[in-house]
């Protein structure tokens, strides 16, 4: 699990916008992974199994109060003085835009970024391949538009 903890962090950051919520979600994912480790029967690779459990946890993880996430439209404040900070800024923009996607779209984008094919995405989510393709394209377009709306482009 140690070597995959970057994944837990990324998923938490995609699904929750505040630091506290992200930490809570990461904890929950670790707990669920631990609880369902018995179900991991080596018929799939460890990472596939782990992605599934982590995303299934994130999908139904709702914050305490049921208010809509207070996503601000303000550009994240990160000093953009050095080139190493451009990456940070880009990432901040990316995660901020991702917050506005639907929960399923986030999962699809995640799998896509982890280099899963349409078929693999479909298999893991339990939808058809065609549906996965349509939904991925839609999510990508939406994400691009959202990032542009934030006054950024890459």
């Amino acid at each position: 699990m140690e070597q995959h903890k970057g994944i837990i962090h990324k998923i938490s950051r995609m699904y929750m916008d505040t630091k506290d919520d992200q930490d809570d979600l990461a904890q929950e994912i670790i707990l669920q992974l631990w609880k369902s480790y018995d179900n991991f029967r080596h018929q799939s690779s460890f990472s596939t199994w782990m992605y599934r459990v982590a995303l299934n946890t994130a999908l139904v993880f709702f914050r305490k109060d049921q208010q809509q996430p207070a996503t601000t439209d303000a550009v994240p404040e990160i000093p953009a003085d050095e080139t190493s900070h451009t990456k940070e800024l880009q990432l901040a923009h990316f995660y901020q835009a991702v917050q506005k996607l639907e929960r399923l779209e986030k999962a699809i984008i995640f799998y896509h970024l982890e280099n899963y094919s349409h078929r693999e995405i479909a298999e893991n989510l339990g939808i058809t391949e065609g549906n996965a393709r349509i939904k991925l394209n839609r999510a990508k377009t939406k994400l691009k538009a959202l990032i542009q709306q934030q006054g950024y482009d890459f």
Binding site: D24, T57, Q90, F154
Partner: peptide, 25 residues
Amino acid sequence: LWNSDKSGGNINIPHALEKLKSAKM
């Protein structure tokens, strides 16, 4: 960009997993 995000190192995996309580499922 995705692959460059290496900021996951600050997640610590607690050792006493039994004590973790599911909170929000």
